[in-house]
C-alpha cells in the first residue's frame, strides 16, 4: 500500500527534474500513446462491439423497431407493455424461481464437495478433476440433449425412480417439473465455484482449527464459527457471480425445450423470451426494453449484495 502510494506520487513535480522537463514529458506522452495503441484492439472491440450496441439498444428501447423499418419513437410504451404482458411476467417468475432455488443449492453443493476434497487423501487430484468435469462439458449442447433424454417417460430418471417406489414420470412433458430439471442441470455444474471454495479453504490457517479443538469444539461448531466466517469473502464472490449467471440462463433451456421455451412456456426464461421477441417476432424495441430492465435489475441485486455484505463478509485482519 505504501509502495503504491509512493509510486503514484513519484511523477508529481516536487523535486527538481533531472532532465529537461520537455524531454521527460514528451517521453511520458509517447509511452501513453504506445499504451493506448497496444490497448487499441481491445478498445476498438469494446466501443464497436459492446458500448456502441448497448447505447443503440438503450435508444431502441424507446422505439418500435422491426428490423425491417426505421425505428419509430414510442416513449415509454415498451416499458408499460412489459407489465401487462402475461408471458413476460411468467418469464420473470420462472427466472426468479430458477435463480433463487438453483443458486443456493449449487453453492451448497460446491462447498460441500470442496470440503470433502479439501482433506488430504490419495488420488486427490483425480477426484477434483472428476468433480470439475461436468463444468467443462455441462454447458455443451450435447449434455442438454442427454439431459432431455434422461428425463422423458421411461428415461433413466423415471426408471430409477420406479425402482425405489416413486413414479416421477417424464419431466420433459410436465410444465411443473421442467424448471427443476434445468436447476439440476445447473447444480450439477458446480465445478467452478467448487474450485474457488477449495482455494478459499486452503487460505484458512490451520491454527484456528487446532485452537478450537483444544477448546473442545466439534465439527459443526468449527464449520459455523471458523470455516464460514473465514470463507465469507469467497462465498460472497461466488454468490454474486452465480446469481448473475443464473439470471442469464439461456442455452440449456433453449435446447431442452427444442428451441420453443415450452412446454407451455415453462422454460421460457427471461433471456429466451427476449430472444423470441427480438429475433423471432422482430420486436427489437421491445426486446431492448427487456434487456435494459434485466441490466438494471441485475445491477440492483448486485448493489444489494454489496450493501449487505458488510454485515456478513469478514475480510482477514478485520476485527469482529
Amino acid at each position: 500500500m505504501t509502495l503504491a502510494r509512493e509510486a503514484s506520487k513519484a511523477p508529481e513535480v516536487g523535486k527538481p527534474p533531472r532532465r529537461p522537463r520537455s524531454a521527460r514529458s514528451s517521453r511520458r506522452a509517447a509511452e501513453t500513446r504506445a499504451g493506448y495503441a497496444f490497448l487499441s484492439p481491445w478498445l476498438l472491440g469494446f466501443f464497436a462491439l459492446t458500448a456502441g450496441p448497448m447505447l443503440a439498444s438503450l435508444y431502441l428501447a424507446f422505439t418500435n423497431y422491426s428490423l425491417f423499418r426505421a425505428p419509430e419513437w414510442v416513449g415509454l410504451d415498451n416499458f408499460v407493455r412489459l407489465f401487462n404482458d402475461d408471458r413476460y411476467l411468467n418469464s420473470v417468475k420462472i427466472t426468479l424461481q430458477y435463480a433463487l432455488v438453483g443458486t443456493p443449492i449449487k453453492l451448497a453443493a460446491a462447498l460441500a464437495v470442496a470440503m470433502l476434497l479439501h482433506s488430504r487423501r490419495r488420488g486427490q487430484g483425480a477426484y477434483r478433476s472428476f468433480f470439475y468435469a461436468p463444468s467443462l462439458i455441462g454447458a455443451s449442447v450435447s449434455i442438454a440433449i442427454v439431459w432431455r433424454a434422461m428425463f422423458i417417460d421411461n428415461g433413466v430418471v423415471d426408471r430409477v425412480g420406479q425402482g425405489v417406489g416413486l413414479s416421477p414420470g417424464g419431466w420433459v412433458g410436465d410444465p411443473s417439473m421442467t424448471v427443476y430439471m434445468l436447476i439440476l442441470l445447473a447444480v450439477w455444474q458446480f465445478g467452478a465455484p467448487m474450485v474457488i471454495f477449495l482455494a478459499g479453504l486452503k487460505q484458512i490457517p490451520s491454527e484456528l482449527y487446532e485452537a478450537a479443538e483444544v477448546d473442545g469444539a466439534g465439527p459443526v461448531r468449527k464449520f459455523l464459527r471458523i470455516t464460514l466466517p473465514m470463507l465469507s469473502p469467497v462465498i460472497f464472490f461466488n454468490l454474486v457471480l452465480e446469481t448473475i449467471n443464473s439470471f442469464q440462463v439461456f442455452g440449456s433451456a433453449f435446447i431442452v425445450s427444442n428451441g420453443t421455451g415450452g412446454p407451455a412456456d415453462s422454460t421460457m426464461f427471461y433471456t429466451l423470451y427476449l430472444y423470441f421477441r427480438g429475433f423471432r417476432d422482430f420486436q427489437m424495441g421491445y426486446a431492448s426494453a427487456m434487456a435494459w430492465v434485466l441490466v438494471l435489475f441485475v445491477g440492483l441485486i448486485t448493489l444489494v449484495f454489496f450493501k449487505t455484505s458488510k454485515h456478513w463478509v469478514h475480510y482477514g485482519g478485520e476485527a469482529k
Partner: peptide, 10 residues
C-alpha cells in the same frame, strides 16, 4: 396427451 407430444418432439 400433450405431455407425450412434447416429449416425443421432433
Amino acid at each position: 396427451p400433450i405431455q407425450r407430444t412434447v416429449q416425443l418432439e421432433p
